[in-house]
Design a protein around this nucleic acid. Structure first.
Length: 791
RNA sequence: GGUCCUAUAGUCCAACGGCUAAGAUAUCUCGUUUACACCGAGAAGACCAAGGUUCGAUUCCUUGUAGGACCACCA
């Protein structure tokens, strides 16, 4: 059996093969059991599994495995999110290409081929840590079935009037050349200059501070605060924009911060969100200085066609030369960047599709309340996100690789033409039109939508993606809403939220009953991230300590709690695995010839120990049921190591070596039985080693193919087992005395006096004597008398 | 700026308002016993601060301090 890493590796390989061959985790659609269904968010295919994945997916797996053993038929599919922008970026990076430089079709092909190669490697990491998904229920968010569901979702929302297309300023990434949703935007601190630029109002010079002088050609007004005494006199006047030499109105607005810059701000459509609010509020003209490809537009005059940074530099230079720049101070400030590529976000006016949900805020709060949150406080994150929503959900991306919109437009009257449901999945750029002419104007001039749906639009259908292979309607009903959504907390605001939106809009139901939110792994208190360079590779941990140790480590942290990574926790996990092996070896060494027979009468100590075990089964069952796997883990571990190995085994050692027939049998029976129960309790956390021991010693008798398919141990009403503590107290006293006097722990004691002598002598005399070395036990205060004390 | 989480031995963490504050790891001492030195026994070591509620607070409340996260703003 396994004693070192090579053996642990071979145990892992053996188990993985067995599980696959025997279909241990396969969902049985014909089951009579209660169904427990899990909607794990499919991980994004971008490089390898990281430690946060290992942490959070292990935690879900503890629950899945417990539920499976505890009488449920577990529906636990595995998906990969390999759709859209993240995959495009990954392919572009690893193949050194740019999607926009090649034909659409060719790039899509390249992505698909890339995924075909990478997916098995990617998924293998999850198998390696022992995730007990049904690997036959695999799905990818870009495959045909998922496209179908995603496109159906769009058609359904269209019919429900929940999607709309609008020409609107939308957040735009000039690098990716696509619209960007609120959730895809991040903060980034950048170095910039705060420039004081001279505008002319009448004959006076007025300084306006800006970090973005390249937007001067798009200036439509300047604002000051209505209570700012410095500028009140300019009310109603016009200001002349430097270099570009046109006039804009001077206006007052409370949104101006008097303390910032010079207290006068220029409003350019579309510099930032406030600019857009002002544009709307004062009905200002719309001027676009930046185009969709990140270049200056024609209104920038001689700067047109230059990219943003060049234009900024040249304009600053020209202002300086004209004496219109009074100061230029370097500052650090935060800007919005596209999280996928780090490029600064611009606002560009274009036609985009949106899902309308701003009107549902109060409903969304109500629906969020209906979920059972574990831990409860994570609900706040959801609530905060909902309350802070300002935009409808932008779902169109101007990209190649993704699920296409299932629509065409009439070029003459702009009518939207929907695909037929039985056409799905559809590729409008290639597939046949559902109509021969525009139903509204009879034009034959029909063009396909070339945009693709945003990744989240598809992945927010995860309950439907997960259950898509189930065709039986009555079974489907049992699977949805799903029992559990496990996930990490940083994706509450989009994945969980968007899935809620879709589920309610399509089906009028919550997508799940329970939500279990994992914390994340920190290193010295900080979140691990590639950019900080403080990442731990789970593959290396696995190599060094094995999957059980990794899972043991993940089980040390409660749901929702961040957990600081310490290598020594892995060491502890590995030690536990070794200890289990050693204890099993000892037990089966002494079970030679034992055939599972029951003694006529249990020895009092054995009976006492089984009572103890019963109470651990009870508490672990309760803890696992309420997703408190970390509590269960530490209880079981403590019981196994302290009560079972250090004390019970010591107490019965002599009896099992050379006890009388029935007394020995009683110990053998107890050992055989309790080890199996302990293995079962540990099985959800450390599935490999428990399986190994089970296969070797129990499978033949139990006649069940895998420990993970055996029934969770039952428990009875709790019974008094306080004698066990009493025995340990007495042993402990003796050990302490021996330790104080530097006497070997197995040394005999001439006489031991204890206040508990009656109980010990009545029921546990021989076992206690053999473990303590006491030659006689008498009533009295705690005292030990050794042979040499006689002198 | 808003919201949330956390604060306990060197480190990582646990504990219905009530006995000596648990465990892991590191440290020190002892032990080589027919499973295990990846072991056993023992020792030493901690409740962020100030108020409040209470017979009693590490635990509940308030404020502060520190760390972290999410969101918003950022001319």
């Amino acid at each position: 059996m396994a004693e070192n890493m090579t053996d642990i590796k071979s145990v892992e390989e053996k188990c993985k093969k067995l599980w696959e061959k025997e279909g241990v985790y396969r969902f049985n659609p014909k089951t009579k059991k209660k169904i427990y269904s899990i909607d794990t968010p499919p991980p994004t295919v971008s490089g390898r599994m990281h430690i946060g994945h290992a942490f959070s997916y292990s935690q879900s797996d503890f629950i899945a495995r417990f539920m499976r053993m505890n009488g449920n038929e577990v529906f636990y599919p595995f998906g990969t999110d390999d759709n859209g922008l993240p995959t495009e970026r990954l392919v572009e990076k690893s193949k050194g290409v740019k999607s926009k430089d090649m034909p659409r079709e060719e790039f899509i092909k390249m992505c698909m081929n890339f995924l075909k190669e990478e997916l098995p490697v990617f998924v293998q990491d999850w198998k390696n840590i022992g995730i007990s998904c049904d690997w036959n229920l695999r799905y990818s968010t870009i495959d045909d079935e998922s496209r179908k569901i995603s496109q159906w979702s769009f058609l359904d929302l269209y019919k429900k009037k929940r999607v709309y297309r609008k020409d609107a300023p939308a957040m735009w990434c000039p690098e990716c050349r696509t619209g960007v949703a609120q959730v895809e935007v991040q903060d980034k601190e950048i170095n910039s200059f705060f420039n004081d630029i001279i505008f002319k109002i009448g004959k006076e010079n007025v300084k306006v501070a800006t970090t973005r002088p390249e937007l001067l050609p798009a200036c439509v007004a300047v604002f000051y605060h209505p209570e700012d005494e410095r500028y009140k006199k300019y009310k109603g006047k016009n200001a002349r924009v430097p270099l570009f030499n046109f006039e804009v109105p001077v206006k007052e607005d409370k949104r101006v911060d008097r303390k910032k810059g010079t207290g006068i701000v220029m409003c350019c459509t579309f510099g930032d969100q406030t600019d857009m609010e002002w544009q709307k509020a004062y009905n200002l003209p719309i001027k676009m200085a930046i185009s969709a490809n990140g270049k200056m537009t024609s209104i920038a005059g001689k700067y047109s066609d230059k990219n943003i940074k060049e234009a900024r530099k040249e304009i600053i230079e020209d202002l300086k030369n004209a004496g219109l720049l009074t100061s230029s101070v370097p500052i650090k400030h935060f800007v919005n960047v596209h999280e996928r590529c780090g490029t600064e976000i611009e606002f560009v006016k274009s036609k985009q599709w949106f899902v309308k949900y701003l009107d549902l805020k109060s409903d969304l709060l109500k629906w969020g309340k209906e979920l059972n949150w574990h831990p409860e406080f994570m609900k706040h994150r959801y609530d905060n996100w909902v309350k802070g929503l300002q935009w409808d959900w932008l779902i169109s991306n101007q990209r190649y690789f993704g699920v296409p919109f299932p629509i065409w437009y009439c070029k003459d009257c702009d009518e939207v033409i929907l695909a037929k449901e039985n056409q799905l999945p559809v590729e409008p750029t290639m597939d046949k039109l559902p109509v021969s002419k525009c139903p509204k104007c009879n034009s034959k001039n029909i063009i396909p939508e070339t945009d693709v749906l945003n990744t989240w639009f598809t992945s927010s259908m995860s309950p439907q993606l997960a259950t898509r292979s189930v065709k039986d309607e009555s079974l489907k009903k049992k699977l949805f809403p799903m029992s559990l959504r496990p996930q990490a907390h940083e994706i509450i605001s989009f994945w969980l939220f968007n899935t809620m939106v879709k589920s309610r809009l399509h089906f009028g139901k919550n997508p799940w009953k329970d939500v279990a939110i994992s914390g994340f792994v920190t290193l010295k208190g900080e979140k691990m991230s590639k950019s900080k360079g403080n990442v731990i590779s789970p593959q290396e941990v696995l190599e060094k300590y094995g999957a059980d140790a990794l899972r043991y480590w993940a089980a040390s942290s409660k749901l929702g709690e961040d957990f600081d990574y310490q290598e020594k926790d892995l060491v502890t996990g590995k030690k536990l695995v070794t200890k289990l092996l050693n204890a099993s070896r000892f037990i089966f060494m002494n079970l030679d010839g034992y055939k599972g027979e029951k003694p006529k009468k249990l020895e009092p100590l054995d009976d006492l120990f089984l009572k103890r075990l019963n109470s651990i089964v009870k508490s672990s069952t309760e803890n696992f049921s309420s997703y408190e796997y970390s509590k269960a883990k530490s209880d079981i571990e403590n019981f196994f190591w302290k009560d079972f190995c250090d004390n019970y085994l010591e107490l019965i050692k002599k009896r099992i070596y050379k006890g009388e027939k029935d007394k020995k049998l009683s110990a053998q029976y107890t050992l055989h039985k309790s080890l199996l129960i302990i293995l079962k309790l540990f099985a959800p956390i450390i599935p490999f080693i428990t399986e190994e021991i089970y296969q070797e010693h129990y499978r033949k008798n139990e006649k069940i193919n895998s420990i993970h398919l055996t029934e969770w141990p039952e428990f009875e009403k709790e019974k008094d087992s306080s004698d066990f503590d009493l025995l340990i107290n007495n042993l402990s006293f003796i050990r302490q005395e021996k330790s104080k006097r530097h006497i070997p722990l197995n040394a005999p004691i001439k006489q031991f006096t204890t206040p508990d002598s009656k109980i010990i002598l009545k029921n546990y005399k021989e076992d206690f004597e053999s473990a303590s070395g006491a030659e006689s036990i008498n009533q009295g205060n705690f005292h030990t008398q050794f042979a040499e004390d006689n002198a």
